[in-house]
Amino acid sequence: MASALSESRISTEHIPVKLVIAGPFGVGKTTLVDALSEIKPLNTEEVLTQAGTLVDDLTGVNEKTTTTTAIDFGRLTMPGVVLYLFGAPGQTRFQVLWNELVRGALGVLVLADTRRIDDSFAVLDLVESAGLRYAVAVNHFPDSPDYPPDALRQALDLHASTPLVVCDARDPVSARASLIALVEHIKELVLS
């Protein structure tokens, strides 16, 4: 699939749009973005200022006054639109970067891992406090316990209208289905 798309060219007629993939460390953001992206993963440096320097160990690099992080980035060129996917780190120390990444995003797909559901709370707080449109996708790992959707909703304290889907971030079809669920939800919110 990715190879057929890799020739896609953007034209000046394309409208750039953005979705953010959020979630705690190790939840599968990179995997999901890579499964969907038509371009090979790109690395750019994001300069983190004060917030990160307090936490990141800079011992021995005294000249270093800032610290950088790589964020996941993917692209899907479609008729009329070019969709950019950004993986956003969920740690609160990335708040400044987070605010910048979600600005102008159509919505956020929050990835959760049922083996450590608590890790998703910080991200859900960020998303909800910013008033962002979002859906939750539970990334199913081979050793993930199976919980009924209602139990997951309750555990994550989700509003009844917030979509909750189970996905396999490695599988492009499954990853795509979670994005479709998110965009359908955004559409409903806009129409309501």
Partner: peptide, 27 residues
């Protein structure tokens, strides 16, 4: 250089959302 800016997203345009949906479904 010239630019094409991303649209404002306070209230996303339904037509843009439809384009994204049909694009995702066609992948």
């Amino acid at each position: 250089l010239l630019t094409r800016d991303p649209p404002a997203t306070d209230l996303p345009d339904i037509e843009i959302l439809e384009l994204v949906l049909s694009g995702l479904r066609a992948l």
